[in-house]
Simulated assay, not measured.
Amino acid sequence: MDVSPDAPKPTAKEIAARYRNEIVHGDREPGSRLPAARQLARELGVQLMTVQNAYGQLREEGLVLSQQGRGTFVRDPATPLGTEPGSSPAFAALAAELSSIHDALRHLDERMERLEQAVGRDAVPEQ
């Protein structure tokens, strides 16, 4: 991003796109810390809220985690969403809901298997 005084100030969407691209292309390793929001805002010449909104977008997408007093870190994609400290509450709720759906599907699969076995035992061979 161009940070010269004459350059237009980046929007939260543009800042998020920059870090999203770096994360997706492996330029930022899982666990690595993004720049402090205040520092980045100063460097880019934007309001702190702009950087906070950009980091919020990345957090909502599940790409980063924020830990109060520590900073914002690239999330490890191998760890299930919503299970890490600093996860988005939306992802925590989604993870819980997906877990319950998975359990329900497993129970339905077991019931279906038992039904198929019962029908198979009682089936009359075709002639």
Rank of each mutant, 00 (worst) to 15 (best):
E113K: 10
Q68T: 15
E110I: 00
I15V: 15
Q57F: 03
A92R: 12
R18N: 05
L98A: 10
S99F: 10
V51W: 02
L98E: 10
T72L: 04
P89L: 06
L81Y: 05
T50F: 04
T11A: 14
F73S: 08
Q68A: 14
G71W: 06
G71K: 09
I15R: 02
D109I: 05
P85Y: 14
R33S: 12
L115A: 06
R106Q: 02
I23F: 03
R75A: 08
V46I: 11
S87T: 03
S32Q: 12
R20H: 11
E60D: 11
E97W: 00
D109K: 13
E116I: 02
G82A: 04
P35C: 03
P85W: 13
D76S: 05
E116H: 02
S87C: 06
R28K: 08
P35K: 13
A90S: 00
L48P: 10
R18T: 11
G26N: 08
A104C: 13
R20W: 11
K13M: 15
L65C: 02
A92E: 09
P89S: 06
E110R: 00
G82M: 03
P85V: 15
L98H: 07
G62C: 02
L44A: 09
H25T: 15
E113D: 09
E113P: 04
Y19W: 14
F73D: 07
P85E: 15
S88D: 09
A37Y: 03
L98I: 09
E84W: 01
G86S: 05
Q57Y: 03
E61K: 01
G45M: 05
R38S: 13
D6N: 14
Q68H: 12
A36H: 13
T79W: 01
L105A: 10
P35R: 10
A17T: 01
E84M: 08
L105N: 09
Y55M: 08
H25F: 12
V24G: 02
F73K: 08
Q117S: 13
A104F: 11
D27K: 09
R114Q: 13
P10C: 11
D109Q: 13
T50Q: 01
R38Q: 13
P80H: 05
L105P: 01
A36K: 15
D109F: 08
I23R: 03
S99C: 15
E113I: 09
E113S: 12
R114N: 10
P89K: 03
N21F: 14
G82H: 01
V46S: 02
E14Q: 14
H102E: 14
N53S: 09
R59H: 06
E116N: 06
Q57P: 02
P35L: 07
E116T: 03
P30I: 12
S99E: 15
A78T: 11
Q52N: 04
R111F: 05
L81V: 11
E14L: 15
V64C: 03
A12M: 07
S88Y: 00
L34I: 14
L44G: 07
E29K: 12
L105V: 04
H25G: 10
E14C: 14
L48K: 10
G71F: 04
D76N: 10
T11L: 15
G31P: 00
R42D: 11
P10E: 01
A54Q: 03
L94W: 07
P89I: 05
L105H: 06
I23L: 10
L115S: 07
E97R: 04
